[in-house]
């Protein structure tokens, strides 16, 4: 296991290096420079700026400077506002985005699995159709439409909730609506997966055996059926996390949340390369870590899976 872990971590570092390099190359290939604003800067100022950000050095030097920054986790100043450090941006934005993402994931997992189980137990009955309709609405409505709709209903019309910046449990109620808006798509995905995977499991012999033993319905579902049906959901979690990241760009914008997604979109609008690369690295890092955690968690969920052997084949 330790050997496998080492191998995976080394591979993750390698992947991260490639990601950083690709992003760097792409950013350098973009025509123009980040200081091209509405009014042209005097040549002397431009030269000074270029020197400050070390953009006047040869590309290869810039690349190594950049790698060094990534390794030391010091992304330097933003190219747009010299007073703001990118690290400060990330330190402020990341916890907010993480909280939003985790809350949404929790909502999506709990409600999605619940909905999927209800649908599979009432196969082709009212409960099934209801769950299917909710799942289809979840995949059909763009998140910004969903977000705006939630604002119209709960904030404008019923005035029960509000939204805005939140931090931990401070102003926690502000995070309810964005979490729901962000959870809609993964919830639908999870509900659909759970339903089809539960339907496959629930008709198998060992479930009949469990019933014959006289186990309670809840025990059968939780201990026997769900544990076997959950594997496809675990493997889909990687994609679901990616969706959460993408969704967070939109949801943070709609609800005015000062998270990392919002910072990223602003940096895209202002072509702040340093910030774009930094966000890409942070997002990729999160995704790579999550993939690793998911792969390891397989062994705990299904002891039959042998990662060390599996690693050789795949």
């Amino acid at each position: 296991m330790a050997k496998y872990l080492m191998k995976r971590i080394l591979y993750a570092i390698f992947t991260l290096w490639i990601v950083v390099t690709i992003t760097f190359v792409m950013m350098m290939g973009v025509p123009g420079n980040p200081f091209a604003g509405e009014k042209a800067l005097p040549q002397a100022v431009l030269d000074n700026l270029m020197a400050f950000y070390k953009l006047d050095q040869p590309l290869i030097m810039q690349y190594f400077n950049y790698l060094l920054r990534v390794v030391t986790l010091d992304f330097g100043p933003s190219m747009r506002s010299q007073s703001t450090d990118i690290n400060t941006y990330i330190a402020n934005g990341l916890p907010v985005s993480m909280q939003l993402g985790l809350q949404a994931l929790l909502v999506a997992l709990v409600l999605g699995v619940l909905l999927g189980v209800i649908a599979s137990l009432n196969h082709n009955k009212v409960g099934d159709y209801l769950a299917t309709v909710i799942a289809i609405v979840g995949v059909s409505v763009p998140s910004f439409v969903m977000g705006r709709f939630l604002i119209i209903v709960f904030v404008t019309n019923f005035k029960v909730l509000s939204f805005g910046a939140f931090h931990g449990f401070e102003n926690w109620s502000y995070s309810i609506l964005p979490s729901i808006a962000l959870a809609a798509l993964p919830l639908a995905t999870i509900a659909r997966l759970t339903r089809s995977s539960m339907l496959e499991v629930i008709n198998q012999e060992y479930i009949k055996t469990a019933r014959a033993k006289g186990l309670k319905q809840s025990a059968i579902i939780i201990k026997h059926a769900l544990r076997n049906a959950i594997l496809p959901i675990v493997s889909a979690l990687g994609t679901i996390t990616t969706n959460l990241v993408t969704g967070s760009f939109v949801v943070e914008r709609i609800f005015g949340i000062p998270g990392l997604g919002e910072a990223f979109i602003k940096s895209v609008e202002s072509r702040d390369y340093a910030m774009i690369i930094a966000s890409t690295v942070v997002y990729s890092f999160i995704l790579i870590v999550i993939t690793l955690v998911i792969d390891i968690s397989y062994t705990f969920i299904d002891p039959r899976i042998n990662l060390v052997g599996g690693a050789k084949n795949g």
Binding site: M27, T242, I288
Partner: peptide, 11 residues
Amino acid sequence: SIPYMLTVIIF
């Protein structure tokens, strides 16, 4: 492992 939308935005 680069979030899909990020690549698209950069492109």
